[in-house]
Structures are given as C-alpha cells and as structure tokens.
Design a protein around this nucleic acid. Structure first.
Lengths: 345, 345
DNA sequence: AACCAAAATGAGCACGTGAACATTTGACAA
DNA sequence: TTGTCAAATGTTCACGTGCTCATTTTGGTT
C-alpha cells in the first residue's frame, strides 16, 4: 500500500527520470526494464521495479508515441452503435484488437442525417490512431470522391467498393440470394418478401438479392411488402399475407422471406393469429439470427452473418501493411430450424 | 484534389516545421494558426493555411499531448459489450463524450472469469486517457482494496460503494423494491420471483430488493425460482408456476416478478400455453424494457433503467475536477402496459 | 596479473509541440 | 522625422521517451 498516494509534482505522474534517480541508475536502464529488453542484471531490474512501484510510474504515452511512431490504437467511427449488427461487428473489432494488444478509439457521429466520410476522417485523424475504420450505414454523400488521410490506413464498412479504401461488409446481397434459392429448392415458387426501410443500404441490397435471384430463376416476383425492421411492422405485413393465403387461388403465397428476424417474428404471430400454421400452411425465414435467448422456443429458420468475422477482417485491414485495396464480402451461414416445410412434388 | 497524394518523408505526415518552411514563417506562427490564437495577420494566416493544405498537415497528437497534458479522451474498460445494458450505457457515454469533444478509448477484458480492477486499470493507464471508467459486471476479486492510478480519475460502474472511486449504477435494488411494492399495491400478496443467474451482481441486488420489500411489508416470500436471463429458462419456470396456479389453494400465486424481460416473456408464453390468461389469471412484470420493436404487440409492464443517464454521469464523473467520491444510484421508471391486473377488494 | 570479449550501463540526440520570453514591424502622435 | 507602444512574429526551452553509440563492468582465459 505504501507509496500509492504520493503527491506527484505538478499533477503529472512520475517520469522515467525520477524512477532512475530513485533507483540510482540511468534513465535508459529504466527504459530497458520497462520495455522488457535483455541485457539487464536481475539485481538492477529488481531495484528499478521497486522504484517504479514506489513512485507509481506510468510510462508517458505521448513521449513513447512521439519517439516510436505507433500508437497501438485504431480509430472507429460509428454511426449508430445501437443497431444489433453494428454491435456484433464492434465486438469482432474489439476482440481482434485485444489479440494484437491494440486499443480502439471510438467516436460517434451524431445527428440523424448521413455524415460525410471526410468529416469522420478529419475528426478521427487528430486522435492517436494508426488506422481507422469508418462505419457507413447510410449512404455517405461524399462516398465516391472521398480521399483518406495520407498515412492513415482507412477501411470502410460498406457493401460498395471504393477506389481508394478497402471496404468490408457482410454479403447482404448474397444472403438473400441464398435464402431465396433455399425457398425455391423447397418448392416455394410463390413467396412474399418483407423489406426493411428504404433508407437502409442493407435493406436495399437484401431486396436486390431476392429480386435478382427470382429473376434468374424466371419466377415472377410478387409486389414487395415494406416494413421498418420492427416486429410490429412485420405483424402488419403478416396480416396482409394471411388474408392472401386464406383467399387461396394460384397466387396464394406459400412462403415469406423477411429481411430481419424481428419482422419474421411479427409475420409468424400474425399468421398464427389468423389460424394458420407455420410451417404447415406457410413457411417463414428471417435474417440475422438475433432472437437467441430473447424469445422462448426460438425455431425460426434464418441466416447468421459472421459479424465478428467482419470486425476481425476490418481490424486487420486497418493495421495491415498491405496497401492493396479490396472489396470484401463476408459470406453468411444458413441456420435451419423448423419454420420451413419442403413442399416439392 | 491537388496535394492529397504527396509522399511524406519517412511515412510520417508533415510536421509544423515543414509547414512553416513552406509558408516562410516560423513554426510558432503555424502553431498559432492551428490553435486559433489571436495576433496573426490575416495575410499570414492564409499563407499558413495554404501550406497546411498542400502538405496535408496533421498536428502530431503525441507532440501536443506531451506538451499540453490533456488527451481529450477517456478510457472505458468493458467486460462484455454484448449485454444489452452495457450497450445502452456505452451509448450514454459516447453521447456525453461527443458533447465534450472527447473520444472514448475502449479496451475489452477477455476470458470468462471476473477480472481484477487493478489489471484493467494498468492496461488502461498506459493509453492516452484523461480519466477512466471501469465496468464491473461480476464481482472483481480486488474490489475493496483497489487503488486507482494516481492522476487518472477512475469511475467504477457498480452498485457497491468504493472508498476511493466514485461508483455509478442503475438502482438495481430500488428497481425491485419499486416493482414489488407496485404488485403489492395491486393486491398481489402472493407472487413468485424469477431470478437471474447467481453469478450476476445485478441479479443479486434485484433479488435482495424483492426479498427485503416483502419483509418490510411482513409478507412471506415464496421460494425463489432461478433462471439464467434467457427466455427459455423463463418458460421452464413459467411451467412450474402454471402448475401451482392450476393446483389452486391459498398458496397459488397471482403474480410473477421476473428479473428481466426475456424471462418474463418466457413465463407469459408458458402460462398461456397452459391455458391461463395474462393478466386475468396471473399478472407478470419484467425489468429492462428490452423488447421494444423486437416482439410484436409488446404489452409487458416493466421497468426502464436510465442507462444513458448512467453513461452520461459516468463520463462527467470521469472528467470532473471535483475530487469528491460518491456512490450514485440512478433511479428507474415504471413502464405500465397491460400485464398487471388490480385485484384489490 | 594481464588481457579480452561480452555483457551491462550511461550519455546524448531527436521526435513535434505549446508556452514564456525576446525581438521586429508597423501605425500613429508629437 | 522621431519616439512610442502595441501588434505581429521569432527564439528558446521543456515535455518524456527510444535509439544509437560510447563507456564501464564482469567473468573467464592465458
């Protein structure tokens, strides 16, 4: 306990020079001990460590960085942490950072309107970071012409490729391609799609994946239903779908592809309330695999993104030496549970 | 566009000295322009700004911090970002940080076992931070004897008071006190409590709040049911409760207090599956208000924590000049929906 | 004892900045 | 023109560190 409350001169913590003076060695020897370099006698090392302990020595970050050049930290600019996907990505980034003994310096862009990448980049670059990851969940107005700060590797989380920065995202398009094919293979040629809000880029790519896949299979797409990601909006669309099913006829859908799990949950609730069975009457699939632990008896067939993988790749691209610019789409995995029935033959 | 791709010597970005040379002024004048100090001719200022633009000047963070002392950044050590509560708190912290033009430097503690506060503090303190917030969601083994790093204001997110650090948390104890009284006031003197896992501190405080409140009201507490926060564990407990209700008798419960919303959801599902009605046969309340948008027709009466408020207070305590040490418990708000029935009289 | 190589330690510089202090410039009144 | 004073600009120093290079010490061999 002793030596913990010592008043350090001037409010700053002790410097290596003071430790050196107390231990009776040179400052350089202290530096060697701190950095774990060889060529220090065990006896000397102990004396220095004791002095460090006594003074509560904290290596000055600025001094080290000024000399060494690296901050061992990457910047992360987030638009909206609350969104589930962003959170898991953040976790992937944090995990990779920990493995490399990096810290993550975060800033959040406020307001509701999409921010310019240049603004985020400028704010971030005045911080001690070795690289940066910019999250862009709505379309940034300056996406095409954005030029990253020289000397700071910049990675953008986006489905779109960029001429000067590596971009990374879950393969939103491919996810719906996969799910649509999955439903087609199970005999569901008449399906409904419940989209997310128009403003969301993910939503647009998911919709395109669904529409294009149907097109490639020469199946006509029924008019799309639009929700807002919430379970209640899914419920509302589910009521419409239930009416179509109950009305019968050749146009009656046999399956629903919802652009996220919450909406899928709403759709299922509406169908069941209308007296229909899932999957006996209608099959339903969602996207995100976000209901784990949240809902009892979760049985929704859905798609899981490798968001931690996205975070990990983003981190590695941000600190990587390779100057190659790539557009990486991380594939997702189908999670088969029991809301889809095979109606072939 | 011009001047954006210039090769900076040695990989480092241009220094103020180089800007000064190009602009034909002294380095100090550049410094004055950068920091917006007065006493610079408009003509000179323009020349300097042009030179900065041309060289892509980025003020060296380390140099400035070395001289100035402040990093305008606070450290945040998180145990598990994924937990819903932690996320909202993080958001509160980020928002407050943005208002003060601070960045947040995060590190995550890995592994499953509770980490020592001293470890987190040591790892954090070697980063450029002016203060730090330590999140402690399980009991840290060194909580009582922990001594914060000198010169770095340290705030702990915890229900327990600490002799040397300000602590802040949502009032977990008070939350269950409030809900228990709420149920009692509505005539439910026979209620069941579905607790979270034993390892969780929040869970322990919630349980104590429930138990003590019943004690103060001289009402006997029925044996506690233990879940693990998940909806499925709530469902399992709900089945037991349904059996008790259907068995009838004076010991049959009329209400359930679940320690979080997911478990409450599971309880409701089990009760309804057993043919019981909520709230006509049994009233149910949860805690967290975490189901918004996630579940269709959310009607759960629950309690909302002011997690953003917690984050904001934590940030302000971490950068505050006041050296007073407090234990702050942020109160929560009852969210009345329709899963509780008044059965008085 | 004398010598030598290797290990341990020390001295000095450079990093880029802000502040205190010193100097120059420019405008205006006498 | 000259003197005066404030504004503008320049000079020097210190911040705390890591690296390079110089010096001292150690331990073993002849």
């Amino acid at each position: 306990m002793e030596g913990m409350d010592q008043q350090t001169r001037n409010g700053r913590s002790a410097s290596a020079a003071e430790v050196a003076a107390l231990a009776g060695v040179s400052r350089q020897t202290v530096s060697r001990v701190v950095n774990g370099m060889p060529n220090v006698t065990e006896k000397t090392r102990k004396r220095v460590l004791a002095a460090m302990e006594e003074l509560g020595f904290r290596p000055n970050f600025a001094g080290a960085a000024l000399r060494g050049g690296s901050y061992r930290s990457i910047g992360l600019c987030m638009y909206n942490i609350t969104r589930v996907g962003n959170l898991a990505t953040l976790e992937g980034i944090m995990q990779a950072a920990r493995e490399h003994d990096f810290a993550v310096t975060m800033i959040e862009m406020g307001g509701d309107k999409p921010y310019a990448l240049a603004d985020a980049s400028r704010r971030m670059v005045e911080r001690p970071v070795d690289g940066m990851i910019l999250n862009m969940n709505r379309m940034a107005p300056d996406f095409e012409e954005f030029v990253p700060q020289p000397g700071v590797r910049t990675v953008i989380l986006s489905m779109y490729a960029h001429p000067r920065c590596t971009t990374i995202d879950s393969d939103q398009y491919g996810s719906c391609e996969l799910l649509t094919n999955y439903l087609l293979e199970h005999g569901h040629s008449n399906m409904r799609f419940v989209a997310g809000p128009e403003t969301s880029i993910s939503s647009r790519f998911r919709e395109a994946g669904w529409r294009d896949t149907l097109g490639r299979a020469h199946v006509d797409a029924a008019p799309m239903l639009r929700g807002d990601w919430s379970a209640d909006s899914g419920y509302a669309m589910g009521e419409r779908i239930a009416a179509e099913v109950l009305a019968g006829g050749s146009q009656a859908p046999t399956a629903v592809l919802a652009a996220n799990d919450q909406m899928a949950l709403g759709v299922i609730a509406a169908l069941e309330n209308a007296g229909l069975s899932v999957p006996d009457d209608v099959s339903v699939v969602g996207i995100d695999d976000a209901l784990e632990g949240l809902v009892p008896h979760n049985r929704l067939t859905t798609l899981r993104f490798d968001l931690r993988g996205v975070g990990k790749l983003a981190f590695e691209a941000a600190i990587g030496e390779s100057s190659s610019i790539e557009a990486i789409h991380v594939p997702s995995t189908l999670v088969e549970r029991s809301t889809v029935r095979d109606i072939r033959g």
